[in-house]
Design a protein around this nucleic acid. Sequence first.
DNA 1: TCTGGGGTCCTAGGACCC
DNA 2: TCTGGGGTCCTAGGACCC
Length: 448
Amino acid sequence: MRAQASVLHLDLDAFFAAVEQRDKPSLRGKPVVVGGVSGRGVVATASYEARAYGVRSAMSTREARARCPHAAYLSGRFEAYRATSAAVMGLLRSCSPLVEPLSLDEAFVDLARADLPDLEIDTVTVFAEQLRDRVHDVTGGLTASVGVASSKFVAKVASDLEKPDGLVVVPPGTELELLRPMHVSVVPGVGPATVERLRRVGVHTIADLQQISEDELVRMLGKAHGHGLHQLAFARDDRPVEAERETKSVSVEGTYEQDLTDRKLMESLLTRQATDVARRLRKSGLSGRTVTIKVRLYDFTTLSRSTTLASPTDDEAVIGRQARRLLEDLDTSGGVRLLGVGVSGLADWVQDELFAAEDDPDPEAASEGSATPLDRAATAVPPPPDPSGGFRPGNDVVHDEHGRGWVWGAGKGVVTVRFETAETPPGPVRTFAVDDPALSRINPVVTD
DNA sequence: TCTGGGGTCCTAGGACCC
DNA sequence: TCTGGGGTCCTAGGACCC
């Protein structure tokens, strides 16, 4: 906690939905929901018009549609969001060299490093109002909510108080009276599980939390969480604003419309995801030693399996092979709703291939780490150019050995087909890899 | 047809080393 | 022969954040 209110937290209001309303005037003033639009999608952002109907972030899109059927449901245009975010972050960095982005729509700014005559309340208040105006200009009309306080914790709490389009400056010395009546869930790191554990011992507000000894919190929540929570309950927060945060892991995952049961299909999807992860690693100049797969079963049980190589890799053939091998141990007979591949233990270099082989205690890992360019060419799975394989839902007719069907969904490397059956219309739904040779297209309907 | 995708951090147990 | 402790690495799972 600093002596002056020099930490600023800025949060763009209903960011994804606001960008859509900015770019499509017909959506202005109307409920807009951005997120997964398919059967298993969830809401990323709801415009304030949609929130009036009870639509919230992280709600299933199914439930959102039930609450607000007339909203516009959009899957999102991340390039537009990234560009708008970059404009805002650029503006913030022009104010202070110490800017810490938390996501596309949120950042901390260290005002102690900004070019301000002083850090008095009036000075930072005028600065923050002018900053909000400039955000409005640089984004083409988006609004931001801002909090300014003596710490990250209180600045973030403050930016939430007058949403949307609000500003709250918390004078130093008044933090505790602001926090005491608030619910414990305003503390970062206190989610549903911690709220429930605290509720069982009668703790609801931050004032309640202050009555619990640090020892007891540590017993309940573990060392790090218990200690941290005790500190924040008294607004003790010295976390610095940090401009640079290094990437710790890179991962790709996907939830599928229908649960997967075909092991060959799962392997082919892991292979594709490994290709995506490797491409992103190379793009960032990174490589990593630990390959992890994530498998979410039909009942939402989530499993992970990982393996650590002797040396870092960014090779899709190596990552893909390890991912498929990790899947071998798992029983997926009940069906799989999500598959993912990640790489962690990152280094910003790839170990020299020849020396890796000599040093390696594990012969299998050694052969992985020392893949030659020739090996790569022989084993690399070429990335299909289009994750939907060119199949268009509702348009294409396909067939396999079971008969003829309509393309029901396509994307993430799979195509879902609803087969026509005379006896039981509309017939069974089955999922294929887009490049499955069993699946051939007949008479594709050309629409454009 | 309840429950995304991309991350971070923490814990706990076992292996292994000194 | 028995009794140690500390530190690091690895793996699996869970909570949390936007």
